[in-house]
Design a protein around this nucleic acid. Structure first.
Lengths: 356, 356
DNA sequence: CTGAAAGCGCTTACAG
DNA sequence: CTGAAAGCGCTTACAG
């Protein structure tokens, strides 16, 4: 190392060039294997050696600045605690890496920032695009006056007026679930839904209604119990459902998280699943298989969504409209939380129920 | 907008300065509210207006380059699917934001990259420091020849020869759990451990042995069943434990994920928890409360670890040694998966207990 | 094919 | 207090 090389913390292209006896343009071209570079093997070796010896690492900021491109994408999720996002991240991350980029994910909740604020902070120049997953509140980003110049794409979430989203076929998923229940012979099927304002919840609800209608089944008003995609919410909503004078024999739950709560509610009230009430939920999780009973779910192509979203974001230019209902196949994962209903028309009182 | 302003995609400091009739140095100083700037309120207003009208956003890459500081930190975790990391991320993220920085997290598994490769890709200049959580394989980063110039800190993981870590008191956690079990009267206590190579697992095992010794309890060889911190692993290991000729009346599980599997194993074999076997696990999860029975756990200060780690990383310089056993308090969360052991040697049928 | 040089958009001593 | 200018570390037309 020359004194120059050790002077600053970082070894630069110039340092490498100097040591290799070439110009930094050559080193740059070599590193990026630019087609316009024909270098003698011997020189190439010298450069490589210099890089090696100096431990040269390109500076991403400098590179980003001069190319106006960072080779990084951002993903903002509401909350790392919700396991559903893990799969989305995985999908997006692996395709980012495949594109020789990196995916940086952050959460709004964890940071205490709104998605828009987070996006601002991520700032121009740090990422080439932003994926916004399940943002309840896209506040600011939807405003045309939004400050962020970074192209974005909403994942599984629509906001009126923003034509930049890719969503899953939530209605289809609901249909799959409800059809499963009706084919088992259920008639009294309730829906433990998501937050009324979330459009995924709205679409799942719509799918439920449609499937019920198609099966010529009626929906008592109190059979639709909105919750909030959390376990506690699911637990509470399920308790309400269970207390109905004419309780459902099956419930279609809008999210696994809520389903876990719902399952717990049933169990703790001595109501057995699936004997007394069947449960099927949207979204599959590794965990679902380990509950007692293992949960029947509709597997949504979450990883694929993340992958597709990143791809779309990387391809299209910032101003293009993207309004896609992602068609990757969903799948009913049959486990043990659904079964044929016990004989209908029998008085409920014949069932032993207890409150805690 | 002048033609210049709309020409390029991005509005620059110069554009703002031009419109406000000042120099870009002034705008820069204003934005960063540099103390050496005393500007007339009227001029300030003009600059602000220009920023507003132009929708100016500072370019992070340029800023990073000129300051050699990115105001961003990276966090690399093995896998987003493991809910334990959610809390760590949360802690690190909120303290990053409090420092006016941003936390970028990525996963090794999701990306298919080793932590070292990921760190390389994140590159110099993109982040000011890297937190490495639970890296099983720190391969490369531990090498002194490592290419990354970014200061890093290992979170809850030690690698021989690297004096850059902060760990939790895993031994203490194990003691807490085992003491709980012995105080309940258990004598045949098994340990469903983590991967033998993971040092967290080693420390939990050590804690278990120590606590058992302190209680003058012996540990049959087959009472130590290593698993892999996953539900499947926990399930398999638990089955082995349950099949023992002299099975334990309680098991201390090294991770919640495994505990979920263990619980499932017991349940599906008709063995009731806690009546026939008590289960206590390290790490608490929101979910633990919703299992049947709700899991008794040792809550570790995960968020605090993330927060402390980020702080440490941000403070100390890259070459300093950081070897901290983080002392934030742990807590036994008593739920329903542990109980007094059934009378030993008595037939199981003699016990009558019901839930809720 | 390769070198010299300008430029990416900021920040910040250094002079006025 | 503020302006002019150099510099952060790269990339890349543009000439040789």
């Amino acid at each position: 190392m020359t004194e120059n090389e050790r002077r600053s913390g970082s070894v630069t292209l110039a340092d490498v060039a100097l040591r290799a006896g070439v110009t930094s343009a050559v080193v740059s071209r070599l590193i990026n294997d630019s087609p316009s570079l024909s270098i003698r093997p011997e020189t190439r070796a010298r450069v490589m050696a210099a890089i090696e010896q100096l431990g040269y690492r390109p500076n991403a900021a400098a590179r980003s600045l001069s190319r106006s491109k960072s080779d990084a994408f951002g993903l903002i999720i509401p909350d790392f605690d919700n396991p559903v996002y893990a799969k989305i991240i995985e999908g997006a991350e692996s395709t980012a890496v495949a594109m020789n980029c990196v995916l940086l994910t952050g959460s709004a909740v964890g940071s205490g920032l709104s998605p828009a604020q987070y996006a601002e902070r991520l700032g121009n120049g740090r990422v080439d695009g932003l994926l916004l997953a399940g943002a309840e509140d896209a506040g600011g980003l939807d405003q045309p006056s939004s400050r962020s110049r970074v192209p974005f794409l909403m994942l599984n979430r629509r906001v009126p007026g923003i034509d930049r989203y890719i969503v899953l076929d939530d209605e289809g998923a609901a249909t799959l679930a409800v059809d499963h229940l009706t084919s088992l012979g259920h008639q009294r099927i309730a829906h433990l839904g998501g937050p009324v304002r979330a459009d995924t919840a709205q679409r799942r609800l719509a799918g439920y209604r449609r499937a019920m209608k198609a099966a010529q089944l009626s929906i008592p008003d109190d059979y639709v119990a909105p919750a909030d995609y959390t376990a506690v919410g699911g637990m509470l909503a399920m308790e309400r459902l269970l207390k109905l004078s004419d309780p459902p024999t099956a419930v279609f739950v809008a999210s696994v998280a809520s389903a876990i709560g719902a399952l717990r509610a049933a169990t703790s009230h001595g109501i057995s699943v699936p004997e007394q009430v069947s449960i099927v939920a949207v979204h599959d999780l590794p965990l679902a298989a380990f509950l007692s009973p293992p949960l029947t779910t509709v597997r949504m192509p979450l990883a694929e969504l993340g992958a597709r979203g990143l791809w779309l974001l990387a391809q299209s230019d910032a101003s293009a409209k993207i309004t896609e209902v992602f068609g990757a196949p969903m799948q009913l994962i049959l486990r043990e939380s659904t079964a044929v209903p016990r004989r209908t028309k029998k008085p409920i009182s014949s069932v032993t129920r207890r409150k805690s």
